[in-house]
Design a protein around this nucleic acid. Structure first.
Lengths: 201, 201
DNA sequence: GTACAATCTGACAGTTACTATCAAAATAGA
DNA sequence: TCTATTTTGATAGTAACTGTCAGATTGTAC
């Protein structure tokens, strides 16, 4: 009761994971649009009602948890001698590296879907404001600084800059996932040359 | 035939404008979600089919043309002595200033809707990649420079930075539209302090 | 182990955005 | 006025999503 999150919680987590896994498999096989929620529910052996209890929309099966709080947490906790962009790189790298191999595969599949299905690309962008806000907050905490307009702009700029780089991924459809990771890291580093956070007034 | 765009074209433009205007009025009165496409079509005196011919989705009635090619055109054509961010400011300012009063009102209403309806906020963000790409291309043309990763990142950063500033608008719900415009200009200027576009390698 | 309370699930019915198709109407050009 | 092209409206259908409610499952107290 104190150590494990309780039977109920565990069962819920398992149901959620099952739905997500089965959905991704179906998407991969038949395509995103051609896979109905009903089919997903059937594959996961739950009712459609239950599907919507776990994921408010069909998109969310793919998009939820794409960038989460733990990444920002790692950003804030990164070695203090690192610059902002270095800390960001650090957070992304250690985050992905910490995934068990199995989750890493799913993550890779998810990325591919997001890249290839226009609808999901759109959805991802729509979710992007949350990471921006999280990062702005993270910067404030990391620097012990009030979250002013400059900080917000810096955060928005950082996420925005990374966003537009995605298209080049198209060329490397079936590349090694780890290579893609290096790619992200490489790009995050380049941010340093473009972005400057001025001191508060 | 050569001067005016032809009767057919004009009629289509008028139909489109009517749908948009009636839709915005209904949204304002009854709320976005509570206004069905059917109701909009009825108010504009067209069939639902026709509605979807002019606007692929309900969201698009509010979001389409939010940032268009002409803004980028003005950016490229801005006085050459202006810096990138100054040119951006110039483009935004002259763009809005050129609107007739009536369109300006609609624009204001549209902005309010986007700010207040979460669904539309989401949609706006989703459309944001297009402006990013347009701007990246514009920068390339303005500087006579190849559109490399640095340029793309810069463009993404610029749009991203402006995105996250929106929330503060919440405070000024019914402020003078012109004041809001000044606000945007002010913020674009601050971009200069944060963003640097390095020379090509 | 039993009884009760809280939560989770499934079944059902309904709304609405959106698609596809095709015949009727409006417009351009001769 | 006649014909070709484009635009429109009517109809039918799909699927995402919502709300409700009774039944099943789990946690808790005794």
């Amino acid at each position: 009761m104190s150590t494990s999150p309780g039977l109920r919680e565990r069962k819920k987590a398992r149901t959620r994971a099952t739905i997500q896994r089965e959905a991704l498999k179906l998407f991969q096989r038949n395509g995103y649009a051609a896979t109905s929620v009903e089919a997903i529910a059937a594959a996961a052996e739950v009712s459609p009602s239950t599907f919507f209890r776990y994921f408010p929309t069909k998109e969310d099966v793919v998009l939820s948890d794409f960038v989460d709080e733990t990444t920002i947490e790692r950003f804030v906790e990164a070695p203090p001698e690192l610059s902002l962009t270095e800390a960001l790189t650090y957070a992304v790298r250690t985050g992905i590296a910490s995934l068990p191999e199995e989750d890493f595969e799913l993550e890779h599949l998810r990325n591919r879907l997001i890249r290839e299905v226009p609808e999901l690309r759109r959805g991802l962008l729509a979710e992007m404001m949350r990471p921006m806000e999280l990062l702005a907050d993270g910067i404030g905490r990391r620097l012990g600084r009030e979250v002013d307009d400059d900080v917000r702009m810096y955060a928005g700029a950082a996420i925005g800059a990374l966003t537009l780089l995605e298209p080049s991924y198209h060329d490397v459809k079936d590349a090694d996932p780890r290579a893609l990771l290096d790619d992200i890291v490489e790009r995050t580093k380049r941010l340093e040359r473009i972005l400057v956070l001025p001191d508060p007034d």
